[in-house]
Write a protein that binds this DNA or RNA. Structure first.
Length: 152
DNA sequence: GCCAACGTTGGC
DNA sequence: GCCAACGTTGGC
């Protein structure tokens, strides 16, 4: 099993949106970056545990935990001309973008601020800090445990 | 295949 | 709104 950090803007789709879905399950879609896509398609598995990161907002940080409930499948939005995520170069035969399904596991009482995470030596090597724009980032076991310990 | 221009992300 | 980082596009 692997651990991940998925980023989303809470205005667009935050942890409250996931919590409000039927069964607290939803689709993680709209990923339009090849490196993030490759992680989703090739490595993310059912049962993987994921940190829900809020970005581009007043309080950037980790808002909770989710779990992958369905492995990668073509993101339907790429075929929908009315969608913001429409990709005219994608076809049903050769999809370009993928989504996974997730369910909410836990919402932290307080968002773990990215500024606090940066101060934590055990998190200094996080790929997320090195590669700020990547929206699907793998975590080491140590990083996963460390972030969880900051939630209490 | 190179590289300049341009677009996007994300913290502040 | 600004800016740094960096991914994408398109001309050559």
């Amino acid at each position: 099993m692997n651990h991940w950090l998925f980023k989303s803007e809470p205005d667009v789709y935050g942890i409250d949106h996931l919590a409000a879905e039927p069964g607290q399950q939803g689709r993680w879609d709209g990923i339009r970056n090849y490196q993030a896509r490759n992680h989703l398609k090739d490595t993310v598995e059912v049962g993987d545990q994921v940190l829900f990161y809020h970005s581009s907002c007043p309080q950037p940080g980790v808002a909770g935990v989710m779990e992958v409930t369905k492995a990668a499948y073509p993101d339907p939005a790429q075929f929908d001309p009315g969608s913001d995520y429409y990709d005219p170069k994608a076809t049903q035969e050769k999809p370009r973008w993928y989504a996974v399904d997730v369910k909410l596991v836990r919402r932290f009482p307080k968002v773990i601020a990215s500024t606090l995470m940066k101060q934590q030596p055990l998190l200094s090597g996080m790929q997320m800090f090195k590669q700020g724009r990547l929206s699907v980032v793998p975590l080491t076991e140590t990083e996963w445990q460390t972030v969880l310990s900051m939630a209490d």
